[in-house]
Design a protein around this nucleic acid. Structure first.
Lengths: 189, 189
DNA sequence: ACCTGAACACCGTTCAAGT
DNA sequence: ACCTGAACACCGTTCAAGT
C-alpha cells in the first residue's frame, strides 16, 4: 500500500541528522525509501512542501503549557522548549527559515508567544516586534549553538579565547539573552 | 587584459539586485561578463569565495566612526548604517549568512561593535553574547524589512492588521528593537 | 595570462507509461 | 492508487586544450 507521508517525514529527519540539509535531496530521500525520486511527487507537491512538513514536525515537541501563573517563568520555559526542539534535528533552523509558518501547530505557537509577550506587559503597538525579536533570538542562538557543538567544544573555547573573550556555558548564555529581552521589553514602552 | 575581480563583484551585485541570489549562478554571472562559466575559476576559487567577496562588498559602506562621545548615539548610528547597507543589496542578509566574517573589513566591524558594547557598560563575560544579539537583530530586521518591502506596503499592512496588530513604521520599529537591546544590556549584568 | 569545450556528477520537476 | 523510465532544464566544478 505504498509509502506514507509520515514515513517521508521520518526518513527525511533521519537524513538530516545523518547528513545535513545539503544532502537531503529528492533523490537521496527516494533511495532511502526504496522508491524513485519521481514517485515522491505523488505524495508531496514539491520540495518546498516537504520543508513545510519538516518544519511542522520539528516544532511538534514544543507544547503549549498553561501560562496563567508566572509569566516570566512561562516565557523562559517556552523559549527553552523551543531551543531544545531546534537542537534535536540537525539544520532545524535552516529548515524553519526556508519554510513559512502556515502550518497549524506553528501558527498556534506564534499566537501563544504573542499572548505571553502581551501578558508580560508589552503594549499592542510593540508586541509583534517584540515577538519577532524573541523568535529570532532563539533561532539565531540555537543555530550558533548547533554550529559550535558540531565544531567541537575544545576548538570553540580556544576560538572564543582567541578573541579575548571568556567562554560561557550555553545554558547560562541562553538565559542571559532571554533576560536581556524581557528586561528590555519592560524598560521600553 | 581580461576581467577584474572588481568587475566580477559589481556584476554579481547587479545580478543580485535584478534577479536575487537564487539566480546568481556561475553561468549567469559568466554570461553577463561575456565569458564562459569555466573562466570564472581563473579569477575566483569557487562560489563560496565569490560569496565572501560579496559579503565584504556589502559591508564596505559601513564605516567606523569616532565613538569617543555619546556611546548610545554611536550604537544607534552604527546599527542604522548596518541596516542601510543591508537594504542596498537584494538578499544581502542571506549572502552574509552564507559567508564567514573572515575578511578584513568585517573583522574590523565586529571589533568596533564589541568596543561599543563594552563602552555601553556590558561586562566582559556578556559582551560577546550581547554583540551576537545586536548583530542578529539587525540582520533579522533587515531581512524582514526587505521581504515586506518587496511584498508591497499595502499587503503588508493588511496582513499585519489581519493578525490583530497595528502596522508600525519601519524606522520606528527598528529603533524600538535597538532600544530594547540597549536597555536590556544595562539592566542585566 | 586568460579563456574555452567538453565533460562529470549532481539538482528539482514533469509526464507518459506501466501495474 | 502508486510507481517508474526517460527526459528537461538546470547546477558547481575540473581539466586538457587553445591563444
Amino acid at each position: 500500500m505504498g509509502i506514507s507521508k509520515e514515513q517521508i517525514i521520518q526518513t527525511s529527519i533521519a537524513i538530516l541528522n545523518k547528513s545535513g540539509l545539503e544532502n537531503l535531496t529528492m533523490r537521496t530521500l527516494a533511495k532511502e525509501l526504496d522508491i524513485k525520486a519521481a514517485s515522491l511527487y505523488w505524495h508531496i507537491k514539491n520540495k518546498q512542501d516537504l520543508l513545510d512538513l519538516l518544519a511542522e514536525e520539528i516544532c511538534r515537541p514544543i507544547t503549549i503549557e498553561d501560562s496563567s501563573g508566572d509569566t516570566e517563568k512561562a516565557l523562559f520555559s517556552f523559549s527553552q522548549m523551543y531551543r531544545e526542539a531546534l537542537l534535536k534535528v540537525r539544520n532545524a533552523v535552516q529548515v524553519l527559515m526556508e519554510s513559512t509558518p502556515h502550518t497549524p501547530h506553528r501558527l498556534e505557537l506564534i499566537q501563544h508567544g504573542l499572548r505571553l509577550i502581551q501578558a508580560w506587559g508589552v503594549s499592542d503597538a510593540n508586541c509583534l516586534a517584540a515577538m519577532n525579536m524573541f523568535n529570532n533570538y532563539v533561532l539565531a542562538f540555537a543555530d550558533d549553538e548547533a554550529r559550535f557543538s558540531r565544531w567541537g567544544v575544545e576548538e570553540t573555547k580556544a576560538a572564543v579565547r582567541h578573541m579575548g573573550m571568556e567562554f560561557r556555558d550555553f545554558d547560562e548564555q541562553f538565559r542571559y539573552g532571554i533576560s536581556v529581552l524581557l528586561a528590555g521589553f519592560r524598560a521600553v514602552q
